[in-house]
Design a protein around this nucleic acid. Structure first.
Length: 289
DNA sequence: AACAGTATCAACCGCGAGTAG
DNA sequence: ACTACTCGCGGTTGATACTGT
């Protein structure tokens, strides 16, 4: 959609960028360090003036995006965990594409990352299922099948990790109930998620161990700098951050999966392909790939 | 090894809301 | 009340990495 007024404004911005020789595209290590140092000394905010003051030939918008999505010390990188997948599905079911709002409940995750996750993973499967991501059919698929299966897998993973104490730490949270009936990720295995018939859920080969690998491992994913050719990670800029990942709380009440029955006719249809509900081959496979 | 297709994600864009002057 | 500016959000793009043939 083109709005005349906006075109005028953007043209002004463009010409202004050209006049100021503003830089676009991937950030360099030097630019990152300049931004980090400036914010460390002066704080965030007033991004346009910040960009100038920091000596960055970038728009304020670009600086803000780089900081919020990548350079902030508490940004968490790496695979979306099962718990996070579950939370994203739940929150998206409630709020739709309110990425920033969803991100508030996933500490360290950015709206951009969640949005990318949704588009690359979830929407892809909607496409495979030949249904719209916003359709009732797809939402029911998530609610009645994917989410309960995720819970099963979370419980299975927790049960597995309890036999391997070295991997049970803040990075492999499980689910427990808080007093306000929200669920909270904690280090304690809980049986609050009562899911029937879980006998086969954990047996899939697609449930790779790295999916629940410790965050400390996940955070070491490299950032391959296209300019310098150096692999670096934003965490290299900082001392290890102390982010409490142990407390990720849903804004809603506990899932009542026992009340979730696939009672809509289309779900029970005999025309449903045999592998239609094969979550292993859908959401979990993709999250490992 | 080379190429093509696909997946991922950082970065940009357009727009609306909020705010200062 | 109006205008200009800033901020933040959601949608989209494009470069790169990855995977399959």
């Amino acid at each position: 959609m083109v709005v005349k007024g906006r075109d005028i404004n953007n043209n002004n911005i463009r010409s202004e960028e050209e006049m100021m020789d503003l830089k676009r595209g991937p950030w360099t290590v030097d630019e990152d360090l300049s931004l980090i140092n400036y914010i460390a000394n002066h704080g965030e905010g007033r991004w346009n003036s910040l960009a100038c003051s920091a000596g960055l030939k970038r728009t304020g918008k670009s600086c803000r995006l780089r900081w919020l999505n990548y350079l902030r010390p508490d940004v968490r990188r790496g695979h979306i965990t099962l718990q996070e997948q579950l939370l994203i599905l739940q929150l998206h079911n409630q709020w739709g594409n309110r990425w920033s709002k969803i991100a508030q409940y996933l500490p360290g995750r950015t709206d951009n990352e969640i949005k990318n996750y949704w588009r690359t993973r979830i929407q892809k499967h909607a496409k495979h299922l030949k249904c719209d991501v916003n359709s009732k059919q797809f939402k029911d698929t998530m609610r009645y099948h994917w989410m309960p299966r995720l819970v099963e897998r979370i419980q299975s993973a927790a049960a597995t990790t309890t036999t391997m104490p070295t991997t049970v730490n803040k990075s492999s949270p499980t689910l427990s109930t808080t007093t306000n009936n929200a669920y909270t990720y904690s280090n304690n295995l809980s049986s609050n998620f009562e899911v029937g018939n879980s006998s086969s859920a954990a047996s899939s080969d697609t449930f790779g161990t790295h999916e629940v690998s410790p965050i400390s491992d996940l955070s070491t994913d490299y950032y391959n700098d296209p300019i310098s050719g150096n692999n670096h990670n934003p965490q290299d800029y900082y001392q290890p951050s102390q982010v409490n990942y142990d407390c990720i709380t849903s804004p809603f009440g506990l899932f009542d999966y026992q009340a979730m029955e696939p009672n809509t006719p289309w779900i029970q249809s005999e025309d449903t392909p045999n592998n239609f509900w094969n979550v292993d081959n859908i959401i979990f496979y993709s999250s490992n790939s």
